[in-house]
């Protein structure tokens, strides 16, 4: 016997703001808390680390006197809490500080690097989500076919290969062996930049598309096996209707969550890809920041990534609530 759920009466409670807005507000508060924690963690980690930043600025040959004056200049002798307060105060004014090694505001460095990373990020994300989703749908509807098996084979290999391994193999094939595409650097603008981005995009797309395909195939396959699909087919509804209104709509929450997760996970993958192809993007900025002990850069980049993650998760949550009436009504019922 399944549980009989009686009709729920929609009670009209006079809320000042809609439940959705309330939820968003709650999440925003939570996001601020998370970001606050992140700043503390970054700060703590950096100052717990051995080898001060003065060494990085002064260079290997710096005399103790020079190092001391650098410390003084950068307020590194102040108590930690004071340094932290200054850091947060500046942060609230939109000031991420000045890079030790690059001698420019951190925000400038990040903006420059983002010019390289963002196109890479967006192109990869769109491609892997769209192609992965499409392949997932295609294979879910033809489970067991030859095409399905081929795609599965590809996705197992693609999804479990480290991105740099894929990258190195691709640059050997397309760069060294065939000589079709450049394998190093960001290009000099225009078509050249596009050309330089093809291999990095391809590399990341292969990895992420594989995961997306696998996930989408399973999810779409689940929905396709549900009674509602059989019922829709028994009513003679077209495959287009079934795909659009039944399969895609009922997988919406999972697919949006996945797309968000992919975007978040890409932050790590991009660091590696930028290293493989020598792109001067955010990832490279972070890695050089780390090796040069350039604290403001590391702090700035980490914060930007954290902010991105928080925003993505918030957007994902809101979208899910918008498309699934069950979540929506549940929200109204509990609020």
């Amino acid at each position: 016997m399944s549980l009989d759920i009686t009709t729920t009466e929609t009670t009209d409670k006079p809320w000042l703001i809609s439940p959705l807005a309330r939820m968003i507000l709650q999440r925003l508060v939570a996001a601020v808390v998370v970001l606050f924690v992140v700043t503390i963690l970054i700060f703590a980690f950096i100052h717990a680390a051995p080898g001060g930043p003065e060494q990085a600025i002064g260079g290997r040959e710096a005399t103790p006197e020079l190092l001391e004056s650098i410390r003084e200049e950068n307020h590194l002798n102040d108590p930690l809490w004071q340094q932290y307060t200054t850091f947060v105060t500046n942060l609230l004014h939109g000031d991420l500080g000045t890079s030790y090694t690059r001698r420019e505001p951190v925000s400038t460095s990040i903006a420059t690097a983002a010019g390289v990373t963002l196109p890479l990020l967006l192109a990869t994300w769109v491609l892997s989500t769209v192609i992965g989703g499409a392949l997932g749908l295609y294979t879910a509807r033809r489970q067991g076919s030859r095409a399905d098996r081929a795609v599965i084979g590809f996705t197992v290999v693609g999804a479990s290969s480290p991105v740099f391994a894929t990258g190195v193999l691709l640059s050997y094939v397309f760069g060294v062996k065939l000589g079709w595409l450049p394998t190093l650097g960001s290009g000099d603008g225009g078509m050249d930049t596009v050309k330089h981005l093809i291999l990095p995009v391809l590399t990341t797309t292969i990895v992420l598309m594989a995961s997306t395909t696998r996930f989408a195939r399973v999810r779409f396959g689940q929905v396709l096996e549900e009674d509602q699909v059989t019922f829709a087919r028994s009513r003679g509804l077209s495959s287009r209707y079934i795909v659009k209104t039944v399969v895609l709509k009922n997988s919406g929450v999972q697919m949006i969550t996945l797309a968000g997760a992919v975007l978040v996970a890409m932050t790590g993958g991009l660091v590696v890809v930028e290293q493989v192809y020598g792109l001067q993007g955010i990832g490279t900025l972070l890695i050089t920041g780390i090796t040069m002990r350039d604290i403001p850069i590391v702090q700035g980049v980490t914060l930007v990534i954290a902010l991105m993650v928080v925003v993505i998760n918030l957007v994902v949550d809101v979208l899910c609530f918008v498309i699934d009436p069950r979540l929506r009504k549940g929200l109204e019922a509990t609020s």
Binding site: D227, S234, R235, G236, V246, N250
Partner: peptide, 20 residues
């Protein structure tokens, strides 16, 4: 199907599209 020949299944909880 649907026009001439219709079908109703067992479980009313899974037969309909939950989000339509």
């Amino acid at each position: 199907r649907g026009g001439e020949l219709a079908f109703v299944m067992q479980d009313p909880f899974t037969m309909l599209n939950p989000i339509s």
